[in-house]
Simulated assay, not measured.
Amino acid sequence: MVVVGSLTLAPSLPATALSASEAAATTLALPLSTTSEIRAETVGVQSVALAGYDGATIVRDGYSAEAAPPPPAPVAEVAAPVAAAAPAAAVGGSVRWPFPQAVRISDGFGPRSAPCAGCSSVHDGLDMNAGDGASIGSIADGVVITSTDDGGGYGAYVEIESVVDGQTVTALYAHMQLGSRGVSVGESVTAGQLVGLVGSTGQATGPHLHLELFYADGVRFDPDAWLTQHAG
């Protein structure tokens, strides 16, 4: 009877009436992974709440984590320096001086003391001393109307007719070296093209270019002033 009573009372004990040792065993029996997840979630929530998260910096317990800086701006490609282009050849009525460099003017346009017997006291052109044998260039595009080695007082000379600013202008290049003329009658030339070489043929006291300019009326005018206006 005693045994039967004991067996009867055992199932009637409440589920919570476990001993302290049994309760501890039950708590320790929880899987470790479950405990870690609970702690991780708790720390994450506390971190956000304490930081006052502003999207850039998270601060907790004296530590900080800076947001990643933006990527550096791409470096602009720098083009290699380009050398300045050489000026294009003068075409289409461009005007230039007969020599590419500055030269000495030995005699200007207008009245003068005659430099030699038979030389005129009224100078119809401009005498330019570029040196014996220097290359003479056409002052403008045009057409050759005279080219001869037998020009009397002019010696070997060439005439080139051009149209500048709507006006027909003729340039006469005199006292050139014999056989140095580089153009023929009827030939079209461009500004800067070789006309001939500086010489002292005809009525000349030494090697120089005698340059004359005139319009259709044949009246000579100052080449220095005209070239300064049109060629600079």
Rank of each mutant, 00 (worst) to 15 (best):
M1A: 12
V2Q: 07
V3M: 09
G5A: 14
T8A: 14
T8L: 14
A10W: 05
A10H: 06
P14S: 15
P14N: 12
S19A: 12
A23C: 10
A29L: 08
L30I: 14
P31S: 11
L32D: 13
S33N: 11
S33K: 11
S36D: 10
V45A: 08
A51G: 13
G52K: 06
D54Q: 01
T57R: 10
V59C: 07
D61N: 09
G62Q: 06
E66F: 12
A68H: 14
P70L: 15
P71T: 14
A73V: 08
P74L: 08
A76W: 04
E77Y: 12
P81L: 11
V82P: 04
A85Q: 13
P87Y: 00
A89D: 10
A89I: 07
A89K: 09
R96W: 04
W97N: 00
F99I: 09
P100L: 10
P100V: 10
Q101L: 08
Q101V: 09
D107E: 15
D107R: 15
G108K: 02
F109G: 07
G110Y: 06
S113R: 08
P115T: 03
C116Y: 05
S120N: 15
S121L: 07
V122L: 15
L126Q: 08
D127N: 14
N129Q: 13
A130Q: 04
D132I: 03
S138Q: 03
S138G: 07
I139W: 01
I139N: 00
A140K: 02
D141T: 06
G142E: 01
V144G: 03
S147D: 05
G152K: 06
G153W: 03
A156H: 02
E159T: 14
E159L: 06
V164C: 08
V169Y: 11
A174M: 03
Q177P: 00
L178A: 10
G179Y: 11
G182H: 01
G182F: 00
G182N: 03
S184D: 08
V185P: 00
E187Q: 15
V189A: 01
G192C: 12
L194C: 06
G196T: 05
T201Y: 04
G202M: 02
A204G: 04
A204K: 00
H208D: 01
L213D: 01
F214D: 01
F214G: 00
Y215G: 15
A216E: 15
V219G: 03
R220P: 14
R220N: 15
R220G: 04
L227A: 10
L227M: 07
G232P: 13
